[in-house]
Design a protein around this nucleic acid. Structure first.
Lengths: 298, 298
DNA sequence: AATATTGTCTGACTAAAGTCAGAGATATGG
DNA sequence: CCATATCTCTGACTTTAGTCAGACAATATT
């Protein structure tokens, strides 16, 4: 990787932790240690369960329990068993706790304001735009692509989302049963792969490979959740599938797609897929693509 | 301030501290507590003084002293009195310390690489550009404009830099003695102001106001250091001077400038200054500007 | 109904990260 | 040369931020 690029990233990290970290690590000034402030803030005005807090902050349950007891001693929170599952506890803020929370919120708001305050309107806009861009790409870089079990709930949820989207985008609607088949059983090694793109553990995309034998395979079920589109996730899914295809001895990859999926067609064209005559009678397919020479590219 | 803008800033803060903080707070994995790792890293391959470390990291001197002793016990650093001032201690890394430092450096590099690695080339570029932009504007927002003593070393340094730059930019060179006078004594209340723009304590710009009486004043010595140009510092200096002028009863502000200072002319035009005939015989001035109605705008 | 799992709490510990009040060695301004 | 300030060090403390093992209650699984 380019050395200059790395040092630019590191420089950004330093700058941001210096300007924001300094300000943001300082939940201090609230007269409350950081851990307490974080927890109190995370409880939020609507309250949550202890379990949620544990998951979100990644803290030891004993530790949280103790912090919550100091809050209770101060009269900031109330703890009661959850209505649905009496093992879990619901934490809610008392009126006093709400005032404390509001104060923390105001502090956080003030810090943000202090950042923008010295800037003129156009500079503010540019800063905000750049922030949004950084955020987007940091999110993109946190997306991980991994093989998954196509029978899993996660995979099924992806496929559901995918089918629903097709149904919404096709004039004719979409019925999975009528389309070219790709049973979960075909999408596990050695006859295929099912890959999932995950962001912070949640699935935000998928793609499948069905190996037909004789050095020939098909790409299927390419889907990316709307919030992470335009971040190159599809590109990475495709590349990952191609790598696995090539490793499995596939030399020719085919796929079909619908005319309404413009982005998809561009993606394939950009990656060396050429349009070919129909190779199946999938009623939803309007374009068929092929890429040859995966083996020679290895 | 716009509420939506604030929440966007806060969102960015969260996202960045989440992604980078998670990666960066983890100097861990170095087998060394964060405090030690930070200190060791900050010492750097060239070494520093304890005093520097104290200032840069904002730590208690006792605390630093103790950390340094653990480093010495491990054979990572050497401490010796500074050549110039025997009160201060110089810390330098031993060869073993250098290896340890290199390891930390490599870790930091790896973390940066992990951020870029999943992205394609064009996305990388966009991320880096956006990072640079955010960094610039965070820097801009950290610039503070404050009144300063025009006799101070800081102010004199600014003026030196200003004169040097004029000398470099004017075809004719520049001799302060021949230009329109503005003695430090004229630039303190009640007859004037000298404002300094500071970034992290260091002066990066200045501007002066000379109140001539009869509701009339002059702007002088507007200068911004090259590294922070284009961030709106001059704009803010000008506005701050105008506010003080207006508060002091000035209604008409004038200033002169040279044709080679294009940015300056644009700045004045944008802020309601209109070109007028020469009002002095400053040999370096080629354009004279005036802004009226400061009192009515109050 | 028996067994396993999950969620919370308690008590007992630990490491990290500081804070504070001097003491002692230099330096600096008058 | 004296008073004052600066810098570092030491010892004695405190607070923060955890970790870990087990106990207990409620729920889920078989």
């Amino acid at each position: 990787m380019d050395d200059d690029q790395l040092s630019r990233v590191r420089r950004f990290n330093r700058a941001v932790t210096h300007r924001i970290g300094v300000l943001d690590g300082n939940y201090l000034g609230s007269g409350r240690p950081l851990g307490e402030a974080r927890l109190l803030f995370e409880i939020g005005r609507e309250g949550t369960t202890v379990r949620e807090l544990r998951a979100r902050l990644g803290l030891d349950s004993g530790y949280i329990s103790r912090l919550l007891r100091t809050f209770e001693a101060e009269g900031l929170t109330r703890l009661e068993p959850d209505a649905r599952d009496a093992r879990v506890r619901r934490v809610t803020l008392t009126p006093k706790g709400e005032r404390e929370w509001d104060m923390l919120d105001q502090r956080s708001r003030d810090r943000a304001a202090a950042l923008l305050e010295p800037l003129g309107p156009s500079q503010r806009q540019r800063l905000l735009d750049a922030m949004a861009e950084v955020e987007r790409f940091l999110r993109a870089s946190a997306v991980a692509i991994q093989p998954a079990d196509p029978f899993s709930d996660e995979a099924q949820a992806c496929l559901q989302a995918y089918f629903q989207e097709l149904a919404a985008r096709f004039d004719t609607g979409f019925d999975p049963a009528r389309s070219a088949p790709a049973e979960p059983g075909d999408l596990v090694p050695p006859s295929g792969w099912f890959l999932v793109a995950r962001l912070d553990g949640a699935a935000v995309g998928c793609g499948a490979l069905k190996i037909q034998g004789d050095g020939y395979g098909e790409i299927k079920r390419m889907w990316v959740a709307p919030p992470v589109r335009g971040l190159g996730v599809a590109q990475r899914l495709l590349r990952a599938l191609e790598e696995r295809a090539a490793a499995a001895g596939v030399d020719v990859l085919r796929l079909d797609t619908n005319g309404s999926l413009t982005e998809a067609r561009k993606l394939y064209a950009r990656n060396g897929y050429g349009e070919i005559p129909p190779y199946n009678d999938n009623p939803y397919a309007q374009h068929w693509f092929e890429k040859r020479g995966l083996q020679s590219a290895r």
